[in-house]
Design a protein around this nucleic acid. Structure first.
Length: 505
RNA sequence: GGCCCCGUCGUCUAGUGGCCUAGGACUCUGGCUUCUCAAGCCAGCUACGCGGGUUCGAAUCCCGUCGGGGCUACCA
């Protein structure tokens, strides 16, 4: 009977657009399984989820899928929250903030899953399966060899009394398996259109482990329904798990109009066209944070991976993103992650920062790199130096290299640069500069520039790039530095003259 | 192997039958500017995977093909 009832379960979800045709308030969830630091792909998903929720004025729900307690740790859960906060992806319901449909950690919802599982068993939608992993493995191998679709063969759909007694006496613990009826499932993916899965290729799947713990397939479906989620935007790796999820809705007795709308986001790939992973690029958001990438730059860049506003604009703020984001404009094809473009956008965002804001953001890097300790006097110097390096850096971490010459206790010219100031011509320049600057009373960069230009360019007849290069190295230690005259002013008269003198043979 | 998804410059993308001799951005190359490095400005290179069809006309529609990816767990 039950089988019959499910024999024709084709259905279709109403096509959805971002204006949310249904009158239900939009509820979008980001539900990662933190088995490590959140990575670029997770964040791109989170960003789209968040942007969609904000765009529609709906709720953004943050749920932790920690049914696999072997791989998910408390540190990773904590790190995931920190990362989202750092990026500015604030959630309306979830860990810390709570909400009406909590708890939001699946490990705290075990009794809920247990209840539904029991119901499914009673209803006959699910059944106990006593097959051991070894047996399943063996049968899978056989299926593969026989070239038939692999998957559970339904052996335990009906078990004889005798077999049941035998399994129990052996102490076997059954898993709970969902009965997949004949037929097919079709759903409308907002990004991909109609997608159909023939149930011949969707085998009966496990809902509850032998030890009684729930699996993703059960928890995710139950939670999305119980939390009244209206839109599921997630990675395309979950596309083929959708018919299973829908099967659980059916067992739960949910009416079709209450199913969430699915949208499967394309992957973020690494350089080598494989899914982005540790092997082919940096994936951990924490890594980008340490490297001096701005959260708004990361979000801006990631927003452009698989989505575009439609016109030629590429620089969008978080606010603009929430205004412009629609699921219709999300691509269906995967995108490759390009560090170079991220860096370019990061540089642009740095240049947009007000000096006080830039100061606030760079100080932790300078302290971490032991360039400064953070005294008010140091901060003053950094602040006055930032305007001249702001357009020269692509990441915040670069400020240390740029400004350390202003703070080092014991200054030394970089070893490889030394020969460049020891030649005859450089020595002439340095001696002349020493003489001129010692006589200079006004130590402002314009005055310094004027004096040096007159002495070195006009009187000695040198090309500017030649003349100033030696001086640059002598004073900053490197042939790459912030503008020379401003650097001299910032360094101060005393230390500048000291360094020039020290560079003279 | 089976099922499913995907296919425009090197990369991200615009493009939904004529506005496309395919636009923008990043990268790269050359130039300008310049005290180095950047930034900025200008210029250049490079793409509709392939083959059929439909049509007066196709990057856009259809079919096939090739290629890439995902899933195929008591992971998510």
């Amino acid at each position: 009977m039950r089988e019959l009832a499910h024999s024709l379960i084709r259905y279709r979800l109403v096509p959805t657009n971002t204006t949310n045709t249904s009158n239900k308030p939009v509820r979008v969830r980001f539900a990662p399984s933190p088995t490590g630091d959140l990575h670029v792909g997770n964040i791109r998903t989170a960003l789209f989820d968040w942007a969609y929720a904000r765009h529609t004025g709906g709720q953004f729900i943050f749920r932790i899928e920690d049914t696999d307690r072997e791989r998910v740790t408390d540190e990773y859960i904590k790190a995931a929250q920190d990362t989202l906060k750092w990026l500015g992806l604030d959630w309306d319901e979830g860990p810390e903030v709570g909400g009406p449909y909590g708890p939001y950690l699946q490990s705290q919802r075990l009794d809920i899953y247990e209840e539904w599982a029991a119901k499914f068993l009673v209803q006959g939608d699910a059944y106990h399966c006593y097959c051991s992993s070894e047996e399943l493995e063996a049968r899978r191998e056989a299926q593969k060899a026989a070239n038939v679709a692999p998957g559970y063969d339904g052996k335990c759909r009906s078990i004889s009394e005798g077999d049941l007694a035998k399994y129990k006496s052996e102490g076997r613990l059954p898993v709970l398996r969902m009965r997949m009826p004949d037929g097919s499932t079709t759903f409308t993916d907002s990004i991909r259109g109609d997608v159909t899965f023939d149930h011949n290729f969707v085998p009966d799947f496990v809902l509850v482990r032998g030890d009684g713990s729930p699996l993703y397939t059960l928890a995710v479906a139950v939670d999305d329904i119980m939390m009244k989620v209206t839109h599921v935007l997630r990675g395309e790796d979950l596309l083929s798990s959708t018919p299973r999820q829908i099967r659980v809705y059916q067992a739960m007795g949910v009416v079709e109009s209450d199913y969430p709308t699915f949208a499967h986001l394309p992957f973020v790939m690494g350089q080598d066209n494989a899914k982005l992973s540790k092997r082919n690029g940096e994936v951990s958001i924490a890594w980008y944070r340490e490297r001096g990438f701005l959260p708004e730059a990361i979000c801006n860049y990631l927003a452009l991976l698989g989505w575009s506003p439609g016109d030629d604009r590429e620089n969008v703020t978080m606010k603009e993103l929430t205004e412009l984001f629609t699921v219709e404009r999300v691509h269906s094809s995967p995108a490759r992650f390009d560090m170079k473009k991220l860096e370019a956008i990061n540089g642009d965002k740095i240049r947009e920062l007000a000096i006080d804001e830039l100061l606030k953001r760079t100080v932790p890097f300078l302290i971490k790199d032991s360039v400064i300790t953070g005294t008010p006097a140091e901060l003053e110097v950094v602040k006055s130096a930032l305007p001249i390096i702001q357009e020269r850096i692509a990441t915040l971490a670069e400020v240390s290299q740029m400004l350390k010459f202003l703070f080092v206790a014991k200054f030394e010219v970089e070893a490889e640069e030394l020969p460049k100031i020891k030649d005859e011509q450089s020595q002439i320049v340095l001696k002349k500069a020493d003489e001129i600057l010692n006589a200079l009373s006004n130590w402002e960069h314009e005055a310094i520039h004027e004096a040096l230009k007159k002495a070195l360019i006009e009187e000695l007849g040198l090309k500017p790039r030649i003349a100033f290069s030696a001086l640059r190295i002598a004073v900053t230690g490197s042939h790459i530095s912030p503008p020379l005259f401003e650097s001299l002013e910032l360094l101060g008269r005393e230390r500048s003259l000291e360094r020039i003198a020290a560079s003279i043979n």
